[in-house]
């Protein structure tokens, strides 16, 4: 049976991981490559690297990092952040990334999704969607949830699927950082609307939250950052708990 995936997310700035990380004895916790290797060995199914560098130099460093990660780890990984053209994607895939994720550039230019999936295949194009519930409606937001768009979450999700996205990474800005569980209502609605895999993001605090997002939210994968980075949840323990709840996981 296809396993539900557990995906740690690493924020990278100028080639270094940010956010405090204190879960294992690393020689250099700021080195994304070493962290990635550890996560691969500790049972992560996949990794996401989010480039939050704001400079051209930072982006160049990112490409270099992608190459070093691909050299070292034997599980798939996605790279996102600041990707806005076919050229950007070509470089990252050539450097060894398995998938790329686009977010605001797809909102600004939806045709980019078509171009990317035609050129590289749907399987490596993830569309990341950040949304917030405002007056009982899920609205797509940009810039880390600070800038609302006119797009309804579910209409946008449907559209990105039609345009050729291979996967959706959905972050609920209402839940992100709260550690109170994932947005399972929205997620279960998703699973009825679109027929591509959905990664749930935002709100992970306990192992039970993962159980719920797979059972109630019907998510195909769950992504989290701090609960893993700070060692609050051990991935193997989490998977054992999921298995106990009859959720298929790779153990």
């Amino acid at each position: 049976m296809l396993a539900k995936r557990i995906i740690p997310c690493l924020d990278v700035k100028n080639g270094r991981t940010v956010k405090g990380i204190n879960f294992i004895d690393l020689r250099d916790a700021g080195d994304p490559v070493e962290l990635a290797k550890q996560y691969a060995e500790l049972g992560a199914d996949e990794l996401v690297f989010l480039d939050i560098s704001a400079t051209i130099e930072g982006r160049k460093t990112m490409r270099n990092m992608v190459m070093r990660v691909a050299e070292q780890i034997n599980i798939p990984f996605t790279v996102g952040g600041g990707i806005s053209s076919v050229e950007d994607v070509a470089i990252l895939l050539k450097s060894g990334a398995d998938k790329v994720s686009v977010n605001s550039s797809a909102v600004k230019n939806p045709n980019l999704i078509n171009e990317l999936s035609n050129k590289f295949g749907s399987q490596c194009i993830v569309v990341a969607i950040d949304a917030k519930k405002v007056n009982n409606e899920w609205v797509v937001h940009l810039a880390g949830g600070t800038v609302p768009t006119k797009l309804n979450l579910f209409e946008w999700a449907k559209e990105v699927e039609q345009r050729g996205a291979g996967e959706i990474l959905f972050t609920s800005m209402n839940h992100d950082g709260t550690k109170s569980g994932f947005a399972n209502d929205a997620l279960s609605k998703f699973s009825q609307l679109v027929n591509i895999p959905i990664i749930a993001s935002g709100g992970a605090g306990t192992k039970q939250h993962f159980v719920e997002t797979f059972k109630d939210g019907n998510a195909d994968a769950a992504l989290a950052a701090s609960v893993f980075h700070f060692g609050e949840i051990d991935i193997i323990d989490l998977k054992k708990e999921l298995k106990k709840n009859k959720i298929a996981v790779r153990l």
Binding site: M1, L2, I196
Partner: peptide, 13 residues
């Protein structure tokens, strides 16, 4: 067919 999510993406046995 569309009775399953397409693409199949992830770890299977």
């Amino acid at each position: 067919t569309n009775s399953v999510k397409v693409p199949q993406m992830g770890w299977n046995t």
